[in-house]
Amino acid sequence: MLNILKKIVTTGIVTEKCKAPKDAELEALGIEIKRHIDKKFSGSIAIRQVDAGSCNGCELEIHALNNPFYDIERFGIHFVASPRHADVLLVTGPVSRHMQTALLRTYDATPNPKWVVAVGDCAVCGGEFGQSYACCGAVSNVIPVDVTIAGCPPTPLALMKGLLGLLV
């Protein structure tokens, strides 16, 4: 127990703030997100992530949003387990045809008002996989998309920037 406490204290808070100049953009973006969320979502936005055929690269970077450096929850953005609790669907992958119905049902299960963010090159335009017998291509071929965040995969910073786009 003492070891754990010691490590926690010596590690300190690594969450990045304005005064860290190289990542200043991060904090600026975060504050911006918070302001918009406050206006539209009363300080809270619930995201349901749906992997619709991704290679898992995008998921790794979405995971990173919750690490102590980015700690996206401090801006009231949190990930939820059910689409019924969600305001936003964060969709990755070139929508494999085997996931098409699952994605449509997840979309239907999300209450209005809802927004869809297509994350990663595959979700934005089909990426490396494109459209084929096995893939529908871009997410917008299946459900309406409000914001796109390109990148293969997008970095955590790009993801935060993209979420901002949804809220302005």
Binding site: S54, G93, S96, H98, M99, F129, G130, S132, A134, C135
Partner: peptide, 10 residues
């Protein structure tokens, strides 16, 4: 099989 993307074919 839900994320079958036809990698071998493409």
């Amino acid at each position: 099989g839900y994320v079958h993307k036809g990698i071998e074919k493409i």
